[in-house]
């Protein structure tokens, strides 16, 4: 993908830059007048999104994630950015008492959330469990030792991290209000010139499936901070009327029962919002109860 793969559009009083990254449509809203400035900001955002995607994608053969997986139990020295993400993942694991675990990605080998009714066997799930568990990893900055057969997956935090990182870069270039939106996870630097925030729509997964274009569940004004959504709009299994959400419990290997269809949370950063949304999903039936205690605006769709 080259640098030219973005588009710029002027809407009434702000510029919108669009590109594709991390398997999602991405956009940057910029409260600026000059096209040249909008172009520069969009290029920065695009480059940063691609950089983070390349660096932490588990599908590539030339990045740090691949090196860690290939090490077969040997220690790997990681760069400061990866180290910061690993620290963060470890803290999330502790905070969630093991529910948020970046080693749970191997469950994908038995769980394929394609909307079908093909559930894995209990035995197959059980076989995977020994290869999951952050506590089995030896992590001492800057060296990581991942037991053979285990995997790490930054998918649960990578996109939100990229959103916040991109905003940081844009903030260094402009004081104008910008909004970075990577596939629905977004953050804004602050209120716009006229004192208002950006209008953000919360998508309803039940309508998105049938009716993709812009059917928002509700709209609200975002003045500051981030918004992230965790949901299973397209990623679920359905068997005998039971919906199996793609939110898996890393301890049992099975989906969290009674998880909401989607949870959208606002927080100080997109990363915070993303973790809170995921933690809410992991609370299943008690998702709303958990969100209530966090004293931050949220939308929970069941």
């Amino acid at each position: 993908m080259g640098d030219a793969d973005y588009t710029l559009e002027f809407r009434a009083d702000h510029w919108v830059g669009r590109f594709q990254a991390m398997a999602s449509p991405c956009e940057v809203l910029m409260d600026v007048e000059q096209e040249a400035q909008a172009r520069e900001l969009t290029q920065i955002a695009h480059a940063e999104a691609l950089r983070i995607e390349h660096k932490f994608s588990r599908y590539r053969q030339d990045n740090i994630v691949h090196r860690i997986h290939r090490a077969q139990g040997e220690a790997v020295e990681v760069d400061p950015e990866t180290a910061a993400l690993l620290d963060f993942a470890g803290q999330c694991y502790t905070l969630s008492e093991g529910l948020f675990d970046i080693t749970s990605g191997v469950l994908r080998q038995v769980w394929r959330f394609d909307g079908s009714d093909r559930l894995p066997t209990t035995a197959a799930v059980k076989k995977i469990l020994p290869r999951i568990g952050w506590e089995k990893i030896r992590w001492q900055r800057p060296r990581l030792c991942l037991p053979a057969g285990m995997e790490i997956d930054f998918g649960g935090i990578g996109k939100e991290y990229a959103v916040d990182k991109t905003l940081q870069l844009l903030r260094a270039r402009t004081t104008a209000s910008v909004l970075v939106n990577f596939g629905g996870d977004l953050v804004t630097s602050g209120p716009r010139r006229h004192g208002q925030g950006w209008i953000v729509g919360v998508e309803n997964p039940t309508t998105v499936v049938d009716n993709p274009p812009l059917q928002s569940h509700c709209e609200f004004e975002l003045n500051q901070g981030g918004v992230a959504t965790s949901g299973d709009s397209k990623r679920f299994l359905l068997k005998r009327g039971v919906r199996y959400s793609h939110i898996l419990n890393p301890r049992t290997g099975w989906p969290i029962p009674d998880a909401p269809r989607a949870v959208t949370v606002t927080a100080a950063t997109c990363t915070d919002a993303g973790i809170l949304a995921t933690l809410a999903m992991l609370h299943g039936k008690q998702a709303e109860q958990f969100l209530q205690t966090q004293h931050t605006p949220y939308w929970c769709i069941r």
């Binding site: 208002q196 925030g197 729509g201």
Partner: peptide, 11 residues
């Protein structure tokens, strides 16, 4: 009127 054009109406 597009969602992003609801900015003034949100005032």
């Amino acid at each position: 009127v597009q969602p992003w054009e609801h900015d003034l109406l949100a005032q």
